[in-house]
Amino acid sequence: MQFKSSASLVRWLLTPFVRVAPTPVQVVLLLLLAAFAAPVFLVVEAPLLLGLDQAWSARIRPYGWLLHLHAACGVLALLTGPFQLVPGVRVHYPRVHRVLGYVYLSTIAIAAPVAIWIAVFHIEPAERLASVAQALLWLFTTLAALVAIRATDVATHRLWMARSYALTLTFVIVRFTTEVLGFRFPADAGGAAAMIWLSTVCVVLAADAIVAFWRPAARPAPRGPAARRSA
C-alpha cells in the first residue's frame, strides 16, 4: 500500500480509532469508570497484591488462589466489557466484537461460580446470601445475553449485556464506597450485606435506564409518493 503523503498515512492509521470512537455520553461513562477504578486499584487492590496488608493476607490464606482467580477474571471482564458496549466496534469490527464477547462470557463463567464457592465456605454468614445472589444474577444476566444473541435478538442482547456489565461494575463501586470513601452501613442497618443488595439493585436499574435512553426512536412510516414507491 502506497501513501501520497504523511498526512494520508496518519489518516489511514487513525481510521480504526475514528470508526470505534464512542459517543459523548459513552465518553462520560468511561471517564466515570476510570475515576472509580483508579482509586480502587491504588488504595485497595495494589497493597493487597503486593502483600502490604498482613492481616488480609492471613485471612485469605485458605482460599487465596481462588480469590485471585476470581479477581483476575473480574478485571478482564471489567476491561473487555466497554468494547462490547461501544457501537463502533460491533458495527465496523464484528469479529473483534464476537471474540471479546466470548472472552467476557468466559471470564464471568469462571468468576461467578468461584465467587459463590468463596461466599458459601469462606465469608461471614451475614453476607453469604447477598453475595451468592449477586453472583447468580451476574451469571444469569450474562447467559441471557448469550441466549439472546444466539437467537439474533439484538435489542434483548444489548439490554442483558448492559445489566451484566453493570453487575461487573459492582466490584469497583462497592470498594470505592467502602474502602476509598469509608462509608459503611452500620450493623443494625444490614452492614456489608445491605451494601451488596443496594449496589446490585441500583446498577441494574441504571443499566435499564441507560439502554432506554440510548435506544433510537422508531422512524415514522413513509407517506404519500415515497410510500407508494417503496410498496
Rank of each mutant, 00 (worst) to 15 (best):
A7T: 08
W12N: 13
L13Y: 14
V18F: 13
V20Q: 01
A21M: 12
A21I: 09
P22R: 10
V25A: 15
V25Q: 13
V28S: 11
L31S: 03
A38V: 15
P39Q: 09
L42E: 06
V43Q: 11
E45W: 11
A46V: 08
L49C: 07
G51H: 06
G51A: 10
D53H: 08
I60K: 00
W65K: 04
L66T: 03
L67E: 10
L69G: 05
H70D: 03
V75Y: 15
Q84N: 01
P87M: 07
G88N: 02
V96H: 01
L100G: 00
Y102K: 05
Y102D: 01
Y102F: 14
V103E: 00
Y104N: 00
S106H: 06
T107S: 08
A109G: 13
A111I: 05
A111Y: 07
P113I: 01
W117H: 13
I118R: 02
V120E: 12
F121L: 14
E127I: 07
A130E: 06
V132H: 08
Q134N: 15
W138N: 01
L139F: 06
F140T: 14
T142A: 05
A144V: 15
A151I: 01
A151M: 07
M161I: 00
Y165A: 02
T168R: 00
I173N: 02
L181D: 04
D188A: 15
D188V: 14
A194V: 07
M195R: 02
M195H: 09
I196V: 14
A206F: 13
I210L: 15
R215A: 10
R219K: 14
P220L: 05
R223V: 15
A227D: 13
R229D: 10
